[in-house]
Simulated assay, not measured.
Amino acid sequence: MTIRFAAVSACALLTLAACNRTQEPVAPASAAATPPVESPAIPAADPNALTAEGLGPVRIGMTRADLVKLWGEDSQPNAVGGPDPETCDEFHPAKAPADVMVMIQNGVLTRITLTRGATIKTDRGFGVGDSAMAIKQAYGGAIVAQPHKYQDAPAEDLFAWPHGGATTYVTDPAARGVRYEIGGDGKVMKVHAGDPSIQQVEGCL
C-alpha cells in the first residue's frame, strides 16, 4: 500500500512540475529586409519652356505694364509693330530672351512668338528648326493641321489647344494654344503661344 501511494505521489509531482514549466516563446524567423521601392523620378517642368500660358514669369493675359516690369520696354521703339499700336503692338522687349516677340492687344499680352534664331523650346521639347513629322508623332490626335496661308505644302500650321480649342477658327478669349508654323522644308519657322491671336497670320495687320 505504501509503495503504491508513493508511486502515485511521484506521478502527481511530475505532472505538476510539467504544468508549471514556463515555455520560452519561439522567436519568428527573421524575414529578409525588403528595400523600399523607389518611384521613377519625374523630371520637373522646365521653367524656361514656352507653354500655351506663357514663358517663365510672363503670362498670357497680363497687362503691358506688368510685362514691362519683367522684360522691359520695346527694344526698338521706333519700329512699327502694328498700324495702331494702341490697339495692337508687336515687339521684342529689351530684357526678353533673344528672338522672342510679344503681342499686346488693348493693353494685354495675348501672344508670345519664337522667331528664327530662337533657342527656346516648348514644354513638349519643340522649337524653331524641328520637323513637323516629329511634332505630329509627339502630339498625336491633339494636333490640328491647317494649310499655310502663303506657302504650298508641306508648309502648314499645326495647332495644339490645351484649353478651349477646336478644329475650326477659335474665338473664345479664354482658349490657350500653341501654333507651330511650318515652312516649305517641313520644319518649324516660328512658334506662337497664347490666346486665339495665335491664329493671326500677319501679326497685328
Rank of each mutant, 00 (worst) to 15 (best):
V170K: 02
Y139E: 15
C19L: 15
R179E: 13
V178A: 03
I60E: 05
V108S: 10
R59L: 12
G194I: 01
E202P: 00
E181H: 09
R59A: 12
F5E: 09
W161H: 09
Y169I: 13
K187H: 15
V188W: 07
A7L: 11
A145N: 05
R124F: 12
K121R: 15
T167L: 00
L50D: 03
G165F: 02
K95I: 00
N20S: 12
F5W: 03
G129Y: 03
H192I: 01
V37K: 13
G72V: 08
P162I: 08
F159V: 02
K149W: 11
A153R: 08
E86C: 00
S30I: 15
V170T: 11
I120M: 05
H163F: 09
N106G: 14
G54K: 09
Y150S: 12
A52S: 12
T119Q: 15
G129P: 04
Y180Q: 04
E73T: 14
N106P: 00
L158K: 01
G54C: 09
R59Q: 14
D84H: 11
V144L: 00
P36G: 05
H92D: 05
V26N: 07
P85T: 13
K69S: 13
T168W: 00
M133T: 15
G61K: 11
P28K: 09
A134M: 06
A118R: 03
V144D: 11
G56I: 01
K69T: 14
D84T: 09
T63K: 12
K121Q: 09
A175V: 03
D157M: 10
E38I: 13
C11S: 13
A96P: 08
A118K: 02
